[in-house]
Simulated scan of single mutants.
Amino acid sequence: MTRPYAEVIGDPIAQSKSPRIHGFWLEKLGIAADYRAFHVTPEQLPDYIAARRADPLWRGCNVTMPHKQAVMPLIDGIGSPATEIGAVNTVYPGSGGGLSGTNTDASGFLEPLKRDLEKTHYFRMARILGTGGAARAIIAALAGHGFTLVVAGRDPAKARALLDELAPKGEHHAIDLAHFADPTDFPFDDREGCLDLVVNASSLGMAGQPPLPFDWSHAPPGAIAYDIVTAPLDTPFLQAARARGHRTIDGLSMLIGQAAVAFEKFFGEAPPREHDAELRAILTQ
C-alpha cells in the first residue's frame, strides 16, 4: 500500500458495498486514495487495530458486525452518538494522535426522513422489527426525535432491555415479533398530523435469510415502510407495503447516508452527493 487508504472490516465482509460507494466518491473527487474490504475475525480484531495504529497511510475503517461493540475498548476516544448507542461503526485517527470512534448509522438512517422530521406532528410512532446491532442505532435515533417505539423481536426480553438502555424515557413497548405475522382488523384512529414508521431493522428478508413475518394490516394508513436490507434491495416487505399504498424507503438510503459521514472523517472532503442517482445505479447492477 503506497497511498492513503481506508477500509471496511467485518466477519464476513465480502458482501459489503462500502468499497464501491467510497471508491465512486474518491474517483469523482479525484482523491488519490483507496478504500477496500478487509476480513477481520473477532480473534484478529485487537491485532488489526494495533497494526493500523502504526500505519501512517491508514485513514480509518468502517466497522460492521460482529465488531461494533468489541472495538470500543480498543480505541482511545468515543464521541456522540456512539456513546449513547453503545456501538461504534467508524474508527479514524483523532486530532490528538489516538484513535477516535463514532457511529454514523443513526444519521444515515435519519437522512431520508429529514423532511418528515422537520414538520410538527401530534404524535410519532415507530414499529421497529429486530433487536440486532442496527436496531440499537435506530432505537436511539428515533427516541431522540420524539417517537413512541414498539420494538418487536423473537426475544421480547431483549427488546425490553434495549429500550431500557437506549430509550429509558417515554412509554415504549416490547413485543414478540410473531405478533405482527397474522392479519389484524384493528381499527386505527385518525392518523392525520401523525408520523408512523414501520422499520425492518433485522436481516430477515435478506438473501439467504428467512422471510420477515409482517402483515401490513398492522400498519396505520400513511405509515412509511423502511427496510435496511440491501440484498435484495426491493424486499418482499417493501413490495407488500407498496401494494397497500405505503411510501417506502430502501436500504441503500441508510447505507449511502452513513457512508457519507464516514467518508468525510477519512478523507477530509464531503462526498459529491449530487451523483447519488448514478451511484445507486452502480450499486444495483
Rank of each mutant, 00 (worst) to 15 (best):
A243I: 05
P66C: 04
F267Y: 14
L117R: 01
H22N: 07
K158V: 12
Q44K: 13
P183H: 13
V88I: 13
F263E: 00
A241G: 13
V229T: 05
V91W: 01
A14Q: 09
Y122K: 10
G86M: 04
F38A: 07
A82F: 06
A137K: 08
P272G: 07
S95K: 12
L149I: 07
G86F: 03
C61S: 14
P93W: 04
G77F: 03
R124Q: 10
H179M: 01
L113P: 09
W58G: 07
P236L: 00
K169Q: 12
L212M: 11
H172W: 00
V150C: 10
V88F: 05
L195T: 12
V63G: 00
A174G: 04
C194Q: 13
H246M: 09
L212W: 03
Q239I: 13
H39Y: 08
E84R: 14
P46L: 02
L177M: 15
H218N: 07
P42S: 10
R3I: 15
L142A: 07
E192Q: 12
G245D: 12
E111A: 15
A143L: 04
P213L: 01
I128V: 15
V261C: 01
L195I: 11
A157F: 00
R52Q: 15
E278G: 00
A140D: 06
G23I: 10
A201R: 05
P272V: 04
A174T: 07
L212V: 09
T184V: 12
Y226N: 04
I224H: 06
H246Y: 08
L129D: 08
A157I: 04
P4H: 14
A126P: 14
A152R: 01
G101K: 07
D176F: 03
E274I: 09
P19M: 10
E274C: 02
R160G: 12
L74F: 12
F263N: 03
I128E: 08
R115P: 04
L99P: 01
T235S: 09
P211W: 00
G251E: 01
R115S: 15
K169L: 14
D215T: 05
M72V: 15
L74Y: 10
S18W: 06
D189L: 07
N62F: 12
R242C: 07
A207R: 10
V229A: 01
Y122F: 05
D155W: 03
A161Q: 14
I224V: 14
A219V: 12
E7Y: 00
K68A: 13
R244S: 12
F186Q: 08
I85M: 00
G132V: 09
F123G: 07
L142V: 08
A143W: 02
A51Y: 11
F188R: 05
P12K: 02
T90D: 03
S253K: 00
F263Q: 01
H145M: 02
L162D: 05
L238S: 06
